[in-house]
């Protein structure tokens, strides 16, 4: 089953969710949401899938930059209310490292330390990083990792297999924007010919 038992949790993170819909959802179970053709259940199912899809994409597409060896920060502007979930995911991936994600208006901070998660939310990511720099002192910045990635990413492309339809389906522009990906977005130079099937 694709609809999880805790689907109300996912639904609550959807940008279009309201109290009325949440109350309706609490009366349903996961199996009903998955199988029913009731328009309310179909709507809830679509909203849950949409949140799950964005969580999955952001876990893969968000890129982090190192600030010393205690801070990793990155750009994130999600469509749904999932910023803190993504931040927690990376905090568990790199224990004892501060994870700061956000955009010009909002930021999320998580630290997984001694088995517990410490969280914070604030204004724009730049302000958050400045606050850490003033509390922790100067730290070395970029280690040239972007260039390593760019070189490696270019090396993996097989021109004879070019398939922009597939690329655009799997890396939709919306997701590239939300995760602030630039290398993949900028490398997407194409002509009209690419959109017509080649014999």
């Amino acid at each position: 089953m694709r609809v999880p038992e805790n689907f109300v949790f996912y639904l609550s993170a959807h940008r279009g969710c309201n109290d009325h819909l949440l109350a309706e959802a609490k009366k349903m179970n996961a199996e009903y949401v998955e199988l029913s053709s009731d328009p309310k259940a179909v709507l809830i199912r679509r909203m849950v899938y949409s949140v799950q899809a964005e969580v999955h994409r952001m876990r893969g597409f968000v890129r982090l930059k190192a600030l010393g060896f205690k801070i990793l920060y990155g750009y994130l502007k999600p469509e749904h209310r999932i910023g803190d979930w993504i931040c927690d995911h990376f905090a568990k991936r790199s224990p004892s490292t501060i994870i700061a994600l956000g955009n010009s208006n909002q930021s999320w901070v998580s630290l997984y330390h001694n088995g517990s998660m410490q969280k914070s939310q604030g204004a724009g990511i730049e302000d958050t990083i400045k606050a850490f720099q003033s509390a922790m002192g100067a730290m070395p910045g970029d280690q040239g990792i972007e260039r390593i990635w760019e070189t490696y990413y270019a090396s993996q492309y097989c021109p004879e297999r070019r398939n922009l339809q597939s690329f655009n389906h799997r890396m939709p522009k919306k997701a590239l924007r939300s995760a602030g990906l630039s290398i993949e977005r900028n490398a997407n130079g194409c002509t009209l010919k690419d959109f017509f099937k080649q014999e």
């Binding site: 999955h56 876990r59 893969g60 597409f61 990413y153 993996q156 492309y157 097989c158 021109p159 297999r161 070019r162 398939n163 922009l164 339809q165 597939s166 690329f167 389906h169 799997r170 890396m171 990906l181 993949e184 490398a187 997407n188």
Partner: peptide, 11 residues
Amino acid sequence: ICHSFTHDGRC
């Protein structure tokens, strides 16, 4: 998790 896709659509 796929972290990126090349322009041939491979993960």
